[in-house]
Design a protein around this nucleic acid. Structure first.
Lengths: 222, 222
DNA sequence: AACGCCTATATTGTCGACATAATTTCTAAT
DNA sequence: ATTAGAAATTATGTCGACAATATAGGCGTT
């Protein structure tokens, strides 16, 4: 199961425009903090202003843009505090996700997750570290989905993860930590396999906390 | 500071329609699970369909309605599992909020919070229990705001709390537990005053967990 | 020269109409 | 009578135009 599995396909024109805009924003094609002019975008994407407005509305609900009445929409500006706060929310939510996953994942799902990790371990042992980010995402997504909690899934997959990716791309942070993250992932999965909710949550929180500390260090460097 | 302090005043017509619709949905004037016809609503609220569409879009980002392309929008249907899942998210987020509040609230804010609790205690000791829900909300809102975490505040205040209120109203649950909740609130505030992040989070999580258990019991009764 | 006010411009908000997709209803054939 | 298909209807999606608000620039005054 890849990330694409979560992308409900776009049927309407507003859907496509929204998805396109989201990519352009997250990947930095439209720089953070810049203003989103409706007329400008409508000519650029060859759709009416109504479509653009709808797309912007959805971007706002992802917390990727901020709107002010009668003024317009701006892409959110990236601040170190913002990223830290994002990781605090992520720690809380993914910790709970791991707890719920330990309770709610099926044995088969857990087996798949274990297999994924083994697979991931093999590729990285071979030095192919370019695969790291996708692997990391797969790990986290599976546990989030494994929680079977609709609200949790929604907030994380449609909201926080795009924002985090935006930070990663635009602050020039290459993927997650490679070296130690494997063991942390492995221990989380073991806890889930043991149906140890308490430990699964604690380990996931630690894992994300370490990421946060790692990022804070990088932010202070620059 | 009351709940009204969070309601950014509506400037545009879509704002007002959104707020009105949200009240009508949460309070049950429009029953859960029912379809939201754009044309119907536009005549009912005396605004154009564009305004209704924008309002519905915002309701969707609150998770109060669900839209399907080329079909329309429905108010979310209330299920016991949905409420339980909501409380799981709430436990994770408000636990983190209490932790952050213990770190980030100013001494003055903590003093105010303590005063509020004393006040609340006096009124309830006098048997005026009708004030309970507002008091409970005030307590939780202050801690959420005290976290100083924008994402946390957004998700809880603009998202989850309206949904929970919708459940409360429509499943006919009178406010929160009265008897034991005070002590739990008091202990949370004490932990925050002591700047004990760990304990503050744990106590808040317990507090919400108890609420969840209480609700589960009520749900099983009916 | 600096400040305030007023006009001009551009952008967002709102509207009604048309295009398109989904649903319902009617018809016809088995 | 039931079902499949097509026409009619209703709803959502999209568009261009107008209205209202905010911003920018120019003008006059102190």
């Amino acid at each position: 199961m890849s990330i694409a599995a979560f992308a409900e396909q776009a049927v309407t024109s507003a859907d496509k425009t929204f998805l396109q805009l989201r990519v352009d924003i997250v990947e930095g094609a439209i720089p953070a903090g810049s203003k989103l002019s409706e007329t400008e975008l409508s000519t650029k994407y060859q759709v009416s202003r109504a479509v653009i407005r709808e797309a912007i509305n959805r971007l706002e609900s992802c917390h990727l843009v901020e709107r002010k009445a009668n003024v317009g929409a701006r892409i959110v500006s990236l601040t170190p505090e913002g990223l830290i706060q994002l990781y605090q929310v992520r720690e809380a939510l993914e910790g709970m996700a791991a707890r719920l996953a330990a309770k709610n994942m099926s044995d088969e799902e857990i087996a798949d997750l274990t297999a994924l990790l083994d697979n991931h371990f093999q590729t990285v042992k071979g030095g192919e570290s370019y695969y790291q980010e996708a692997g990391d995402l797969d790990f986290h997504y599976r546990i989030i989905l494994g929680s079977k909690n609709q609200h949790l899934i929604e907030v994380l997959v449609n909201g926080i993860y795009h924002l985090i990716r935006m930070y990663r791309v635009q602050l020039g942070m290459a993927g997650p930590r490679v070296t130690t993250a494997f063991d942390e992932h492995k221990h989380v999965v073991q806890a889930i396999a043991n149906r140890d909710e308490e430990l699964a949550e604690m380990l996931m929180r630690r894992h994300i906390l370490y990421s946060k500390n790692n990022i804070e260090r990088k932010l202070l460097q620059s």
